[in-house]
């Protein structure tokens, strides 16, 4: 075991995967010699050579399109989209190509690619470096969507994603790269070295895609969250004193519905939290599933806490980010309903 930040864990996952399988290649903008703007690929080119880890032109549709072609050949590309906000030029390649190649060719061709992309706000990135576009992927059949919340999961899930036979969108909450950020932006950063889940095996292991994890056991209300919001929800539970059960989804597609249903049947209350905008967000899907499957166990309406339905602002970042105070108010509201 070693102490790792989420950046180191992600890097270690690619290192392990590249070491085990010559067909794994890593490329993207600035990922080669320099090692990526967040340093996730640092050292990989030096270790595996520049035909296994290399810089790409600034063309997301080109990066994803070539990755799809490489996968059709038999490689397993793990590419970096520098920010999730930059994925839109590749959206056609992702949704109408990567996601459907297995289906439309009846398995004649497949598309085992991973698109890693830093997501979410909290670094004063403004509207083009802060987005959480996960719902734009969960709406696409044929994709898998993974959002880790800690170094241990990030490594195990990324290795599982690279080994997966289908395309995986791997969203890395960038505000979690260096520590378990709970939304208290005015407090000193807590490093991963002081957190249990910063303890990461150096070798190969996987975490199954499609399995959620309960981060806090509780009996009063179920909080469904993923990525950064897991830590925000944990903080809100402590600060309000409400005995919340916090579920970290880890994978949005496929979704661990059983874990949600089991918990809500126990608590009778549910709050869904995400940083992405509210309307047509993934929280709507969760809320709908909860009422379909747990209606007669519910004591109160399902409440959603999300980013406002506006672009991610720059200066007002902390008024936009759904921090522990907003999640806490939702917990109180759902308990009082």
């Amino acid at each position: 075991m070693a102490r790792m930040t989420m950046i180191e864990a992600v890097r270690s996952a690619m290192d392990v995967a590249m070491g085990r399988d010559d067909n794994v290649v890593v490329f993207g903008e600035d990922v080669g010699y320099f090692g990526g703007v967040f340093r996730c690929t640092q050292g990989l080119q030096a270790k595996y050579g520049k035909t296994r880890c290399f810089d790409a032109p600034i063309s997301e549709s080109g990066i994803v399109g070539t990755a799809i072609g490489m996968a059709a050949y038999g490689l397993k590309p793990c590419v970096e989209i520098q920010f999730a906000d930059y994925m839109y030029p590749a959206y056609d390649q992702i949704t109408q190509e990567a996601a459907r190649i297995r289906y439309r060719s009846n398995g004649d061709f497949t598309c085992p690619i991973v698109l890693r992309m830093p997501t979410g706000g909290g670094i004063f990135g403004g509207q083009t470096h802060s987005q959480s576009p996960e719902a734009l992927f969960t709406h696409v059949c044929g994709l898998k969507v993974v959002v880790p919340s800690n170094p241990y999961d990030a490594k195990g899930l990324l290795i599982a994603s690279i080994e997966d036979p289908d395309p995986v969108m791997f969203l890395e909450p960038k505000r979690l790269y260096n520590g378990p950020f709970d939304g208290h932006h005015d407090r000193p950063v807590i490093p991963w070295s002081k957190h249990d889940l910063g303890e990461v095996p150096e070798g190969h292991y996987t975490i199954p895609i499609g399995k959620a994890e309960v981060r806090r056991k509780g009996s009063a209300v179920t909080v469904v969250a993923y990525g950064t919001m897991v830590h925000v929800a944990l903080a809100a539970a402590e600060e309000t004193g409400i005995d919340a059960e916090v579920i970290d989804l880890r994978s949005l597609l496929p979704l661990d519905l059983d874990a949600i249903v089991q918990s809500v049947e126990k608590t009778g209350r549910c709050v869904v939290v995400h940083e992405a905008t509210l309307t047509s967000g993934f929280g709507g899907e969760i809320a709908s599933l909860v009422q379909e499957h747990c209606f007669y166990h519910l004591e109160a309406p399902v409440v959603r806490v999300a980013g406002w339905d506006t672009p991610y602002p720059h200066a007002q970042e902390w008024d936009y980010f759904p921090g522990p105070a907003r999640v806490g108010r939702a917990l109180v509201e759902v308990m009082e309903a």
């Binding site: 399109g65 070539t66 038999g74 439309r104």
Partner: peptide, 25 residues
């Protein structure tokens, strides 16, 4: 014969990726 998309031009850059893979290997 790679699976035809029905979408336009997407396959053009995929072909380049396939060729790059052949060169990588």
């Amino acid at each position: 014969f790679f699976t035809i998309s029905g979408n336009l031009a997407t396959q053009y850059v995929q072909a380049v990726g396939w060729a790059m893979a052949s060169a990588i290997k």
